[in-house]
Amino acid sequence: MIIDSFSSFHPIVNFTYFSAVLLFSMFFMHPVFLGISLVSAFVYSVMLKGKKAVKFNILYMMPLLLFMAILNPAFNHQGVTILFYLKSGNPITLESILFGVASACMFVTVILWFSCYNAVMTSDKFIYLFGRIIPGLSLILSMVLRFVPRYTAQIKVISNAQKCVGRDVTQGNVIAKARNGIKILSIMTTWALENAIETGDSMRARGYGLPKRTSFSIFRFDNRDKVTFAVMAGLIVIVLIGAVMGENTMRFFPSIKTINTTIFSLVVYTAYFILCMLPVIINIMEEIKWKYIVSRI
């Protein structure tokens, strides 16, 4: 596992990248595009999370993929190439199996991209990006994110106190457990509400909502970000042109049909591949740079 330098880029670069790959992955059913996206998402998730991701991908994603691939032909009987008939008389077609496999790949790819998104787009980046568009709501979001660990800690304090009188969630039968849980929740609610008003008043005392206040931000859009953003924008445009020209369309029903591979489609495939692999490429480049600098010293 190497250090993910893509995470250190400006949030706009991160967010644009993930929006682009997520949208493209949801849209493109063409096998080449699916394959590129799936492989990139897999490689990047392993790069981000190491062994844990490999285990997760094989333990959960593979069975999910198989399950979904089987599920589709059971409900979908379109297509011309009939392989065999079910007992109920419904045909199982080659097209519906392939469509099932393709949509399963798509689903797994989207899940994998989201797992990468969770690792890279931390909540502070999200709030930094949307703080100007939705200031009130993003303040709420950041407060909730801060409150939750705080309340979990407070719940532990309360629950330890309750344990002394035999009323913890680990004590008694199921009904007693649930009842004790609610009691703890109730104690915490009273504490939280009183605490909240104090926080609100202290915010007002420090000038929340007054005009001409600056916002805290630690992100700078430097040259590295500009170059990456420009490259990314160029690749997205190429892929979009390809999409408009129909390079990625794939017809499954009634019979499978794709566009013939031309030089232009190879260009689009390459662009999509580079786009999806962008963080991986950046990471490898940084790693090489790092090794090179180290060896010179």
Binding site: L139, F147, V148, V169, L185, A192
Partner: peptide
């Protein structure tokens, strides 16, 4: 509507309680 600090914080508290509740169970 330019919500006030107290209003924001009550919404945040209730959401946090709900999130913590989801976590507690």
């Amino acid at each position: 509507r330019k919500p006030k600090a107290r209003e924001l914080i009550v919404i945040a508290v209730l959401s946090a309680i709900a999130v913590a509740g989801r976590g507690a169970f």
